[in-house]
């Protein structure tokens, strides 16, 4: 087994272009647990824990940019995040327990592409962009396009997630994040929902919804948004929204929950969100 420990991004990219199969290791909370359970380890590991330049949060040109190595504890308590992206801080605060939040990173949470990743629904409603970098290029794509399928992403073998960029949300929006798990700490979501809404007298002006654990990847609920756009939230509108939701999601039964439970729970939190504001 070989471990690479680059100390700057240039060195990382050089190694990664020569060793495309080396597994990127960030906080290790997903990978070490996986290696332990499967009793195998990869032949080549490239750790990014020494790349201190990847750990930052800044506000610039109407964007908040978060370095991929930023951990959950930092996101939970950071002033910029709490001011502009409150439900991202909330989502981070629900991840694992203190030690997990000190170790786990935003880059790992996204790259792992678990349908239950807690930062994902919040990032999706904030229209987050993933910034990828390799030896020869840098590219940006929407988080919703970064996800390609169950635990699959658009990340190339020579690439690194450099940062997550989030446009400042419009003025006057209300946001909320709901997570249903088995116990308060350490529980992976059975189902989760993030919502961003701006209501005017004449109807909904802006609506964005995203859900976790109800499809192979975390998803934006675009069709539901289209239906709700411009509507006044009467009981019958909310009821139709629930019907659309049911057609649109594909939850499964697994160790954590059943398909039926997930359908009912997500419907209930959608109703709670729409009728609560």
């Amino acid at each position: 087994m070989k471990i690479f420990l680059p100390t700057n991004i240039k060195e990382f990219l050089e190694i990664k272009s020569k060793e495309p199969d080396a597994i990127i290791l960030a906080g290790g909370t997903d990978l070490l647990a996986q290696w332990h359970n499967n009793k195998i380890m990869p032949n080549k590991i490239i750790s990014i824990s020494m790349l201190k330049n990847l750990s930052f949060i800044k506000e610039e040109n109407n964007f908040v940019e978060i370095g991929s190595l930023t951990n959950h504890a930092t996101i939970e308590s950071n002033k910029i995040i709490n001011k502009y992206l409150p439900i991202l801080a909330t989502a981070a605060s629900t991840i694992g327990a203190p030690a997990i939040r000190n170790m786990g990173t935003i880059g790992g949470n996204i790259a792992n592409a678990s349908p239950a990743a807690d930062l994902a629904p919040a990032l999706l409603v904030y229209d987050a962009i993933v910034k990828l970098t390799s030896m020869n290029s840098t590219r940006e794509l929407k988080l919703s396009e970064f996800y390609r399928g169950y635990k699959q992403t658009a990340l190339g073998k020579d690439e690194l997630i450099f940062s997550i960029k989030i446009p400042l949300p419009p003025q006057g929006v209300v946001t909320e994040f709901f997570k249903i798990g088995t116990r308060r700490a350490q529980s992976i979501a059975k189902v989760s929902l993030a919502g961003l809404i701006k209501k005017e007298k004449k109807g909904i002006d802006i609506i964005r919804l995203a859900a976790g654990s109800v499809a192979p990847t975390p998803i934006r609920l675009y069709e539901l948004e289209k239906f709700l756009q411009g509507k006044i939230l009467t009981r019958s509108v909310i009821s139709t929204a629930c019907d659309i939701l049911q057609k649109y999601i594909k939850p499964i039964t697994d160790v954590r929950s059943t398909e039926e439970y997930r359908r009912i729970a997500l419907k209930n939190i959608l109703v709670k969100f729409l009728s609560g504001i």
Binding site: L32, H36, I100, N102, M103
Partner: peptide, 8 residues
């Protein structure tokens, strides 16, 4: 605070 089992 960290977990030694998840730390290479």
């Amino acid at each position: 605070l960290k977990l030694a089992c998840l730390q290479l």
